[in-house]
Nucleic acid binder design. Sequence first.
DNA 1: AATGAATGAGCTTTCATTCAT
DNA 2: GATGAATGAAAGCTCATTCAT
Lengths: 214, 214, 214, 214
Amino acid sequence: MTDKDRSPSGKSGPSSGRDPERSRRLLIEATLESIARKGISETTVSRIIEHAGVSRGMIHLHFGGKDKLLEEAARTFCEAYYIEMDRQLAGVSDGPTETIMAIVRADLSEELLNERSVAIWHAFRGVARLNPAIAHYSDTRDARLRGMICDAFHALLESEGDAGVADDITMGTLALLEGMWTDFLTHPDAFSRQAAVRIVSRFLEAMFPGRFRI
Amino acid sequence: MTDKDRSPSGKSGPSSGRDPERSRRLLIEATLESIARKGISETTVSRIIEHAGVSRGMIHLHFGGKDKLLEEAARTFCEAYYIEMDRQLAGVSDGPTETIMAIVRADLSEELLNERSVAIWHAFRGVARLNPAIAHYSDTRDARLRGMICDAFHALLESEGDAGVADDITMGTLALLEGMWTDFLTHPDAFSRQAAVRIVSRFLEAMFPGRFRI
Amino acid sequence: MTDKDRSPSGKSGPSSGRDPERSRRLLIEATLESIARKGISETTVSRIIEHAGVSRGMIHLHFGGKDKLLEEAARTFCEAYYIEMDRQLAGVSDGPTETIMAIVRADLSEELLNERSVAIWHAFRGVARLNPAIAHYSDTRDARLRGMICDAFHALLESEGDAGVADDITMGTLALLEGMWTDFLTHPDAFSRQAAVRIVSRFLEAMFPGRFRI
Amino acid sequence: MTDKDRSPSGKSGPSSGRDPERSRRLLIEATLESIARKGISETTVSRIIEHAGVSRGMIHLHFGGKDKLLEEAARTFCEAYYIEMDRQLAGVSDGPTETIMAIVRADLSEELLNERSVAIWHAFRGVARLNPAIAHYSDTRDARLRGMICDAFHALLESEGDAGVADDITMGTLALLEGMWTDFLTHPDAFSRQAAVRIVSRFLEAMFPGRFRI
DNA sequence: AATGAATGAGCTTTCATTCAT
DNA sequence: GATGAATGAAAGCTCATTCAT
C-alpha cells in the first residue's frame, strides 16, 4: 500500500486509485510470494488477491486469467535473475577464468540463491514440463547462462584440445550449479554458500590446474 | 507387476477379484503413472481409479485417503530406485573407483533415469518442501546414495589429503548427477546418457588423474 | 421475506440479482424449511440450494460452510421465537398473573407452536447436545423464557411463602410447556391448543386458587 | 467379548463361534451405545460393528439393513423402559395416589432417567416423526404410561367431578415428566432428581390437597 | 478501470450395501 | 452362518471464472 514507485503516471488519483501498472506489479509480486511460501498448488486466486490487496476481477482484467498471470510471474522472475546476474558481472575483468568464477559466485550469491528464489524456481520447473509458456522462460534463462559460460570455456581452451571438451565442461558446470540449487532447496539450513563455491572451484581447478586456485 | 502373492487361491478371478495386495499395487502404479504423465496437481482421485480400474472407495479403504496414497507411492518409488541401484551394483568388483563409476552409470542408466522417473522424482521433490512424509522418503533415497559415494571417496583418498576433500567431492558428484537428471527433465530429446557419463568421468578423472580414464 | 434493504438500487433485478443479504435470507429460510420437512440429516447442501434457488458456492461464500449455515439458521429461528413472543406480550397489562397467562398463550399460539416450529425446535435440540454453537442459541431462548416467568412468579409470591417455591413453579410451568410442544410433535392431529392452555391453567389455578380461573 | 449370557443355546462353538442371538444382542447394544455417545447421525455401520466386534455383513444378515437395526434398537430400548418401570412398580400398594407417585418416582429414577437413556430417547424421537416404525415403539411406550396414569386419576376422581378432568391432569402430568426429561437432556449437571419429584408433587398436591403431601 | 457476488464443474471423502469366498 | 474387500451414489467443499454494477 506504500506509494513509492508511482513514477509511470504522474496524474493518477489517491492511493487506491486507478493505476493499471501498479495493480499488475502487485499481482505478480503476490503470486511469486505465494508460490515461494505455499507452493504452486496452494497459490489460489483468492490468496493472490488477498496478498495483493486488489479485487478479484483484476486478474482477468489485466492478465486474462490465472494461467496467464502465472506465465507473467515466471517471466518476471526469470528476467530478475539475469538482471541481477548482469549487475554482479558488471565490474568483472575480462578474462574467461574471472568471468566463469564471477558467474559461479553470482549464481550462488545470496541475491540469487535464497530460499525464496529456489522455491519459486523449482515450482516453475515442476510446471514447465506441461506448460510450454513457462518452459520458454526457464529455457531462456538457462540458455543465457549456458551461452556466457560456454564462451568463456571456449576462450580458455582456444589453444588446446577439441571443441567438444568445452561443451562438456560447460554442461558439467551448469549441472554442478543446478545440483547446488537443489541441495539448497532440500537442506536450506545445512547449506553453505562458501562450501558450494569451493566445491565448484575444486572441480574446475582440477580440470584447469592453476587457473581456479581455491 | 510381479505375480508373487497369488498363493491364496491358485485359480484366481479374471482381473477384478478379491486381492487387497493387488489393488494396492494397481493404485500405486496408477498414481505414479498419472504423476509422470500429468503432474501431481492433475493427479486426481478420478484419474487414478480410472487408470487402476478400481472403484472410488478403494483409495480410502486401502490407504485412508489420497494424501496417504501419494505418500505410499513416493515410498514405493524411492524404494524401487535403490532396489534397482543395488541390482546393478551387485556384480561390480570391489575397488572404490569401480564402485563410484558403477553408481554413476546406474544413476544415469535407462532403468533409473528415464522420462517417467525423472518426472516423478521432480514432482515429489516439488511437494516435499511442504510435505514432511514425502520429504522423508526423498531424503532416505538421497542419504543412501550419498553414503555409498562418500565411503568410496574416503577409501580413494585414504592415504592422501584431508577428509573434508572427500566430502566436497561427494557433494560435487551428487550435484553433477542431480544436474544431469534436471537436464534430462528439461531436454529429454537432446539428452545423451553417454555424454552424461563422459562428463562426470571427465571431472572425476581431473580430480584423480589416471583413475577415471574415459 | 421482508423487502427492507432493497435501497441500493430502486430498480433491482427480477429475482437472482446481486443482493447478499437476500441470498443469506433465502438460504436460512430454505434450511429451516428443509429441517422442518425432512429433518436435519436429510437437509443436504443440494436440497438447500435447490429450495433457495441459488448456486452451490453460495453457502460457502456467505456462511463458510454447511455447519455455519445451520448455526445461523438456529440463531435466526430462536430470535424469531422471542421476537414473536415479545410482540404478543406487547399489549398485555402489567400483573404477574396476566403476564404468565400471556406467555403461556403465546407459547401455545399458532404463531409459535405449529408443526413447522415444533419440528425445527426438536431437530435443533437433538443436535444441540453435540454442537455447542447451536446449544448456545437454544439455551438463550430457554433462559429468556425462564427469566420472564420466574420474575412473574416471584412477584406473585412476594408476600407469602419461601423463594424456592417460585423457582419450583417456574420449572414446573416450563416443563409443562415443553411437554405440550412434545405432545404436538408426536400427535399434531390430536393436539388441541385450547386444551393445552386449559391444562396449564388448571395446574396454575390449583397452585394459586382464584388467580388462574379457567 | 465376555461369555456371560450364553444360556439360549447350550451347544455353540468357542468364544467367537456361531451364535446368531448373541450377534443380534451385541449389535443392538452397540447401536444404542453409539446413539447415546455420538448421536444418530454419527452412528454409522462402521462404528456399530467396531463396538460390537462383529463383521460388516452381520447387520444385513441378521436385520436386513441398518434401518431395520435402528428399529430393533428402538424397540429394545422402549421395552427395556417399561420392563424396568414394571419392576419398580411391582411391590407398590394398590391406591391410585401411591401408584401415581410410584410411576413419577420410577420415571425420574436413575435407572430410567440418566444421560444415556435421555440421549437415546430424544434421538429416537427426532427420527420418529419421519420413521413410522420407530414412531410406533415410542407411541407404544407413551401409551402404556398414559394408560397407567390415566386409570389412577380416574380412580382418584371417581366420586367427584367430570371425566375430562382426569384426562387433563393425566396429560399435564405426562407433560411435566416429559419436560423433566428434556431439562435433564439440556442441563444434566444442574438437574436434581429430588427437585423434579418435589415439583411434580407440588403440582399434584395443589390439584388434590392432602393426597400428594410432599 | 474496477468491483465482488455469483456460478457450477469438479474435487476429496463418506457410507450403506453387496457378494465371492 | 460369517467375512471383509469391493462398490458407487451422494455428500460437503474449493476454486477459476463471469458479469452486472
